[in-house]
C-alpha cells in the first residue's frame, strides 16, 4: 500500500506526460483533416491535466491510499499469469496453454486460503480441461473461429 498520495498531482502529471507524448507523435506531414481532431483533443487533455496539477498544489487536493485492497502480490502474479497465458498461446496453442495456465492460476489463488492435495489438484485439471474443451468446440466447430494451434491441436 502507498499511503496518502496526492492523486490530483499524480493524475495531472501523468496527463501532461501523455499530452506531450501524443503531441510529439503528430506527424508534421499529416493533412489538416487528419490532424485537426487529435490536436484539439491533446489540447483539452493538457488543459484538464494542468488544472489537476494546479488543484494538486491547492488545499482542495485529493489524497488517498493506493493499492490498499487485498494482496498486491496476488494482483501482480495474476497479471503475470494473464500476460504469460497470451504469450504461451502463440507457442503452445490455445488448448494446451489454457489448460496449463488456468490450472496453475487456480492452484495459486486457492493456496492463499487453503491446502490443496495433489488428488484435488488433479481433479481441478480435469475440470479445467473440460471447460477449455467446451469453449474450444463452441468456437471452432460452431462459430468457425480458428483458434491458435500449437502442441496436439
Amino acid at each position: 500500500m502507498i499511503r496518502n498520495v496526492n492523486t490530483d498531482l499524480v493524475a495531472g502529471t501523468l496527463g501532461l506526460l501523455l499530452s506531450l507524448t501524443f503531441w510529439s507523435l503528430i506527424d508534421p506531414r499529416m493533412t489538416h483533416m487528419s490532424a485537426v481532431f487529435p490536436t484539439a483533443m491533446i489540447g483539452i487533455m493538457a488543459i484538464a491535466s494542468a488544472l489537476l496539477v494546479i488543484k494538486g498544489f491547492s488545499r482542495a487536493a485529493e489524497r488517498g491510499n493506493l493499492f490498499d485492497v487485498g494482496s498486491n502480490v496476488r494482483v501482480l502474479a495474476t497479471g503475470l499469469f494473464f500476460f504469460g497465458w497470451v504469450i504461451a498461446i502463440g507457442y503452445l496453442g490455445f488448448f494446451v496453454s489454457s489448460v496449463l495456465v488456468m490450472s496453475l492460476l487456480a492452484l495459486y489463488l486457492a493456496l492463499a486460503g487453503r491446502r490443496v492435495s495433489p488428488a484435488r489438484f488433479a481433479l481441478w485439471v480435469g475440470i479445467v480441461a473440460c471447460e477449455v474443451a467446451f469453449f474450444y468446440l463452441i468456437f471452432t466447430r460452431l462459430l468457425h473461429v480458428l483458434l491458435p494451434e500449437g502442441w496436439f491441436f
Binding site: W85, I89, M102, L105, L109, E131, F135
Partner: peptide
Amino acid sequence: FFLVPTIGLATIVGTFALRNSL
C-alpha cells in the same frame, strides 16, 4: 480461484474471436 481463470478464458477467447488476432 475458478472464477478468475474462467472469466479470463472467456475474455481472451471472446477478444481473439473479434478479429482472429492475438
